[in-house]
Design a protein around this nucleic acid. Sequence first.
DNA 1: GTGGTCTAGACCACT
DNA 2: GTGGTCTAGACCACA
Lengths: 124, 124, 124, 124
Amino acid sequence: MTDFRQDKAIYLQMADRLCDDILSGRYVSGDKVPSVRELAVTLGVNANTVVRTYDTLSAEGIILTRRGLGYFVADDAKERILRMRRILFMEETLPELFRQMELLGIPMEQITDRWKQRFKQKEA
Amino acid sequence: MTDFRQDKAIYLQMADRLCDDILSGRYVSGDKVPSVRELAVTLGVNANTVVRTYDTLSAEGIILTRRGLGYFVADDAKERILRMRRILFMEETLPELFRQMELLGIPMEQITDRWKQRFKQKEA
Amino acid sequence: MTDFRQDKAIYLQMADRLCDDILSGRYVSGDKVPSVRELAVTLGVNANTVVRTYDTLSAEGIILTRRGLGYFVADDAKERILRMRRILFMEETLPELFRQMELLGIPMEQITDRWKQRFKQKEA
Amino acid sequence: MTDFRQDKAIYLQMADRLCDDILSGRYVSGDKVPSVRELAVTLGVNANTVVRTYDTLSAEGIILTRRGLGYFVADDAKERILRMRRILFMEETLPELFRQMELLGIPMEQITDRWKQRFKQKEA
DNA sequence: GTGGTCTAGACCACT
DNA sequence: GTGGTCTAGACCACA
């Protein structure tokens, strides 16, 4: 059981991670993703949990199943994820961020400062 | 049943909103908050759910109960909330925001632009 | 275990039946559908199987979940089902029907005759 | 891997197609059907899958194997297929069609219209 | 070996 | 009592 947060279902966190991996290029269209049993062992979760993750992603058209062969990254997987995530970011994350900034009295400069700091760290 | 997200417990969302109201000044120290029954009717939720909200906030020292009178906003409520929220913002919200920006390829300029737009709207 | 066909997953057959019931008006928008455990007992299947059925329908926007209360038929459930089914009928069922008719040398008159027979039976 | 539906076993879909070809006259009694390896390459499937298809059709008496020579269409293949398919059509396909028509409110005229359209297209 | 389905049973959170 | 999640383990079909 590797590092999963308590406040969100494991199968959803696994789905999010796979999507992250597709966005970052770790998996590209056509790639085979780990088999259900393999991933279950790797992450120390039950096979059914992996099944649920793959089921979810499959329903969203992000991965495809080929009988007896495994799950594969869909052709337009990255585009689909980007589209969904961008909508989520613009319509949920950002408004909520701004709301918090106003409530907590955090100025935009503080955000941009942190952003630059992060950038410097990455360079180093 | 007014607009609650389904991915988080209603009683926690209600607690969050009450905290928001304290931060925004809608309620100040010493104010009486709505009675359990009243709030239950207003929001269309079960009375038990409201009880749980107030229990949670009580345990955090944000509201206090006076037997037979109701719940009242604690003296240092705003400070307590600010402290907790700021930590949450800096250690959770912001890192996650930056991670998403990098994954989605969203530049900081887009964030600041939106921020300015929001500011203009508020003025108008 | 009441009458389920062998060639299709039980959870999908259950989903189909619920959709049939919505189309036929047995359930209308806002109606509560049987609880997971109740339906499991009624149909003699495992609760997890019912969960899977409801999960699927939920993902398709046909039913909605309210925490601690149950599953309810969505507002536009009937329209959604009709839309999906009609597309399936026109693009899959009908072309396949015609193909079979040609291969088997079955004339349209035979179909219409059967249809009329069915109609008479229903009247009686 | 040419266009196979995912809701039915590939080997069964291949069997169906071969039967279609026999019904349509593409293959007649005594004809040799493609070798396992050839068909496997043509359709991009595993050779084992083709073997399974031919096994199934052999068991149904639709094709016959001659050791060292290959598989050949049986004498009464067409009649056998016609008999099985007609029963299936009348007892399964047609009742289900009618049920769908009633549920979806599709009148028989719409079916006959489409049928005529299809006929015209074929003539042209 | 791969996925797909189902069962049994447990624990949790919410209403 | 309601749904939500997870585990354990089994059996099947497919490649």
